[in-house]
Amino acid sequence: MSSVTGVSLADETPGPHGSAPLSGDGAGTGRLGDRLFGGAAKGAGIFVIALVTLVGVFLLWQAIPAIANDKASFLTSREWSVNDSNNLRFGIVELLWTTVTASAIAMLIAVPVGVAVALFITQYAPTWLSRPAASLIDLLAAVPSIVFGIWGLRTFGPVFEPVQNFLRDHLGWIPLFSDANISGGSTILFVGIVLAIMVLPIVTALSREVFAQTPITHREGALALGATKWEMIRISVLPFGKPGVISAAMLGLGRALGETIAVTIILSTLPDGAKWTFSLLNGGETFASRIANNAAEFDTPQKAGAFIAAGLVLFILTFVVNAIARIVIDRRKAFSE
């Protein structure tokens, strides 16, 4: 920490979405080094944009013929029979429901817990504890998803079973918790919880980063007004960190929406023609797990096209989530500089 009186480094540090220069300035001199580096940066930028565009084009190109041949309604049908290429019938509504609810459960758990852990590490924990705690959480991010899948299936699932039974027995009258005859360790609810554990390190690490950057002047401004520590956090740290937390949540959500292997391992698939229910205690398939479960069957372009169409929707979903996050963050900008 620098002097309490003079200008501290923290004063100058721009917020995560503050005044950091995101666009080029006029400082280039036209010298060789400038041109080389400028060219390389521009090339990398164009490369990334081109890559995303190509992925989108590929998905559209593969998906459109299949969607055009779809005899059922692509957006609202629950059917999925793609074996007879003269009578393709498939729709995504069930995949969408499962994907979105499992991810929503994950976010509902991971964001508050992640923010709380980040606050603890940056504001409350003594130094000897905060460093190891932070590293430990970062380590969690490095655990491969297959490990989470197996651990969830074999170890955590049985432990969770009684909790699930309790919900079913006592809250069963709420449609979300009605009985669907699926064992505890392989329901949407359970997958949501495992996903929460998987995205927790992302949310925590990024939130920790922004909270730690709260300028000392903001924090002291609150304390000098007679704020308690928690009030100081509410007045200074949380508002300062909010855009960062939103970004963190969106990154986590992106991971949860697209997570494949852990979901595929854990979630019970439903038999054809199973009854529709809103229950979180049901099984099902997400976009990603439906594709993974059937990867062996992409033998005709028609069939593959149906799955790629599902992938396209996931792609768009992630895109929309990120766009919304950007808008939310930009709207707050006027108040954060």
Binding site: P215, T217, G221, I235, S236, F240, F335
Partner: peptide, 12 residues
Amino acid sequence: GMVFQRPNPFPT
């Protein structure tokens, strides 16, 4: 009460 060297209104 205290007033600091650099104006520090709560930015949000």
